[in-house]
Write a protein that binds this DNA or RNA. Sequence first.
DNA 1: AGTGGCATGTAAGTGGTTACATGATTGG
DNA 2: CCAATCATGTAACCACTTACATGCCACT
Lengths: 195, 195
Amino acid sequence: MEKRSISTLGFALLGLLARDPRSGYDLARLMRVPVGLFWKAGHSQIYPELARLERLGLVTHERVEQLDRPNKKTFSITPAGRRELQGWLVQPNDPPINRDALVLKAFCIWLADPLAAARLFREHADFHRAQLDYCQQQQDEIRRRFGREMLRVDSPRFADYIATERGIGYHREYERWCLWVAELLERSAGAPAEG
Amino acid sequence: MEKRSISTLGFALLGLLARDPRSGYDLARLMRVPVGLFWKAGHSQIYPELARLERLGLVTHERVEQLDRPNKKTFSITPAGRRELQGWLVQPNDPPINRDALVLKAFCIWLADPLAAARLFREHADFHRAQLDYCQQQQDEIRRRFGREMLRVDSPRFADYIATERGIGYHREYERWCLWVAELLERSAGAPAEG
DNA sequence: AGTGGCATGTAAGTGGTTACATGATTGG
DNA sequence: CCAATCATGTAACCACTTACATGCCACT
């Protein structure tokens, strides 16, 4: 007897297929970017999950012959799949668990060499700045190409818009914190001994 | 042959034991709160990990007889453990993976009923507001009790200070986004049809 | 006698990562 | 001929969650 419940990854795939039919390979690419910004998965997780969704009747596939490239399977969401997804969307989430190794390091930073630690935080600041720029650029692109559609809450563009906005806010705040920590560490290294 | 590499949870435990010797039970409590804000673990993960750290010579324990409560083992970090931890602290992190079900839902929100979705986002706003208040309160307490120590980068209070600051920034930004999304959804439900 | 906190562990299952495995086709 | 991209899968391993299991002690 097949288990009825669907994993979060399953819903992620349904969410992508609700926009367009896709091959497993395409889905894997999309799960790296842009979906990877909030839910990552590799192809070794995706192919089995697609098979499971198909057994549950939530997606179907058809074989597509290609001349210029290897043949592929194109998956589509079924009406049942769409219903499942819509139900999940308005279901309350259980409290999110954060696992952030950098904050854990921050919690132990009193044991580290301040300047080496500052370097680490500056590296992370750079990373989040880059992510921030990417999100900003994506959002600008959406605004430029779909300015009208973007504000219709029943359009995928609206969903893209608010998701990129979260990315912008998240990485901007994270970068701010990293730089703030780095400065405290560096200032203290500059003026070490006191009273 | 015992594997040499230490899991992030292992470092979290070393980080706590570097502050004070603790029992597994105490560590489990601390891993719920306050460490749970950035790295959660249950006792079923902690006890085996402590045993592993001990086999690696990074912690030791002594049996403590108690009259008023069940006996316990008190774990302490060893010099080797402290060295491992200090080395890890300044090691570059691999890019953090974010898994956030709410942002995933946001990415699919165009399929959902706007008002039901708005409710979900307001619930999350409440959650992050509560977390924000908690972090703020913890930081105020640190400032009040350890205002001097808090600014010394080699003090655990400094680590507490910057970790709570991250919590404040994170949850403040998350709350802001949730409320912003909820408003967009509600406004659109108020004025649905357009040209 | 029962509840709740202290205290320590193991077992089973799930979700996710890394590595293994194969093969077509295009372009340099 | 080689590397890169397209394309699809399996296997082994690891981290984490949930459930199982036991027992002491204090308070009501």
